[in-house]
């Protein structure tokens, strides 16, 4: 296995173009587990940790562009106020040691249906900045995940950054695990209120071959909420929203949980997330 260590972003893109089978590695919290368990023996690893272009984040009026090497710990510490949902999701990742190394871009690169960052990226309508020697493109999160551990990057593309919209409204994220920390999601759910657009965004994790939005649930609840009056959520709306979210999932039975439990839990989480976000909106 070759270990490629580009020093600059253009060099990394060139390497990836030469050797599309090279697996990019930053924190290594996914890749090294796979290598150590002998589940994967890539012909080369492309180490991105030396590339200065990837280590920062920047803000414009609509979004924050998070460089591919920004860790979960930095998201929590530096972006917690502006991206509360992503920070909540980041807090549920692994242990402090894992959060100190793991990155949002790595979560995207692994594209596991159980990745903790995915649901809120879907709920917020984030996009992935993919680049190759051929150029740069923005892939909406909803188009990024195409199958179990498969994404829509071309073989020569690398993730340069993630663009997360600055949402004008409350955000929530919840994850079910069978212990109270350091656990892979049995299922997870994220919700974001886009107040000016009167829209509710959602994301479901670990309950389908890919992370996915619950579009029917979004359509229903966006129309059912009393946005103008800021009154309490009408009776039955939360429960119906939960049902629609659960129906959108297509979970399986596995060692982490049953399909029936995942559906049940998603309905509860959706209802609770909506109530928490709405309460915050009412108080704002």
């Amino acid at each position: 296995m070759d270990f490629l260590r580009p020093q600059t972003w253009p060099e990394a893109l060139a390497r990836k173009a030469e050797r599309p089978a090279a697996v990019p590695i930053a924190g290594g919290t996914d890749v090294m587990v796979e290598v150590n368990f002998d589940r994967r023996r890539p012909e080369a690893l492309l180490d991105l940790t030396r590339i200065p272009e990837l280590t920062g984040w920047e803000r414009d009026e609509r979004a924050i562009r998070i460089g591919a090497n920004v860790t979960y710990t930095r998201v929590i510490e530096e972006l917690g106020a502006e991206l509360p949902g992503l920070a909540m999701a980041s807090r549920t990742v692994g242990s402090p040691q894992i959060r100190n190394r793991g990155t949002i871009a790595g979560n995207l690169g692994a594209a596991s249906p159980a990745g903790d960052a995915h649901p809120i990226l879907l709920a917020l309508g984030a996009s992935v900045e993919a680049e190759s020697v051929r150029g740069t493109r923005l892939i909406p999160a909803v188009e990024f995940y195409v199958g179990v551990k498969r994404h829509s990057l071309a073989p020569d593309e690398l993730i340069r950054a993630v663009h997360v919209p600055l949402s004008p409204g409350p955000q929530q994220f919840s994850k079910i695990g069978t212990r109270n920390a350091m656990v892979i999601a049995v299922c997870s759910f994220a919700l974001a209120l886009d107040v000016p657009a009167r829209r509710v965004g959602t994301g479901i994790g670990s309950a389908a071959p890919t992370p996915r939005r619950a579009v029917a649930a979004e359509d229903y609840v966006s129309g059912a909420l009393p946005w103008e009056s800021r009154d309490p959520i009408p009776d039955g709306v939360g429960a119906r929203f939960g049902e629609l979210v659960a129906q959108t999932a297509s979970p399986i039975d596995d060692v982490r949980g049953s399909a029936a439990y995942r559906r049940h839990a998603l309905a509860v989480l959706a209802r609770r997330n909506l109530a928490w976000a709405w309460k915050e909106y009412q108080c704002a």
Binding site: M88, R91, T92, Q172, F173, S174, K175, I176, G177, N180, A181, V183, V268, L269, R272, W276
Partner: peptide
């Protein structure tokens, strides 16, 4: 809370 920082309940249930 049950669930810890995974934010599954604020006391509900």
């Amino acid at each position: 809370m049950p669930g810890g920082v995974s934010n599954t309940t604020h006391g509900e249930g």
